[in-house]
Simulated scan of single mutants.
Amino acid sequence: MLAAYAARIDPQHPLDALEVGEIDVAATPGGAQTSDDWVEVQVRAAALNHHDLFSLRGVGLSAASLPMVLGCDAAGIAPDGSEVIVHGVINDPGFAGPDSTFDPRRSLLSERCPGTLAERVRVPRTNLVAKPAELTFSEAACLPTAWLTAYRMLFVQSGLRPGQTVLIQGAGGGVATALVLLARHAGLRVWVTSRSEERGERAASLGAHAWFPSGSRLPERVDAVMESVGAATWSHSINALRPGGAVVICGTTTGAEPERAELTKIFFKPLRVIGSTMGTRDELADLVGLLVATGLRPVIDSTTPLAEVGQAFERLESGSGFGKLVVSVG
Rank of each mutant, 00 (worst) to 15 (best):
A3H: 06
I9F: 03
H13Q: 15
G21F: 13
E22W: 06
V25H: 02
A26C: 06
A27M: 05
P29K: 01
A32K: 06
S35R: 04
D37T: 14
Q42F: 00
D52E: 15
A64I: 02
P67V: 08
M68R: 15
V69M: 08
C72V: 11
G81I: 05
I90D: 00
P93V: 09
P93K: 05
P93F: 09
A96I: 07
P98V: 07
D99G: 01
F102R: 12
L108S: 09
G115T: 04
P124I: 10
P132G: 05
A140H: 07
C142K: 05
L143K: 03
A150C: 09
A150H: 09
Y151W: 15
L154I: 12
F155T: 02
S158W: 05
Q164E: 15
G174F: 14
G174R: 15
S196F: 04
S196A: 08
E197H: 12
G200A: 08
A203R: 01
L206S: 03
H209I: 01
F212K: 06
P213W: 11
S216V: 09
D223F: 05
D223G: 04
G230R: 08
I238H: 10
I238G: 05
G251E: 12
G255R: 06
A256L: 14
A256Q: 15
E257M: 11
E257S: 12
R260G: 08
L263H: 14
M278T: 10
M278V: 10
R281N: 08
A285R: 15
G289D: 10
A293I: 02
L296W: 07
P298M: 10
T303G: 03
F313N: 00
E314G: 13
L316P: 07
E317R: 02
G319Y: 02
G321S: 15
G323Q: 10
L325G: 07
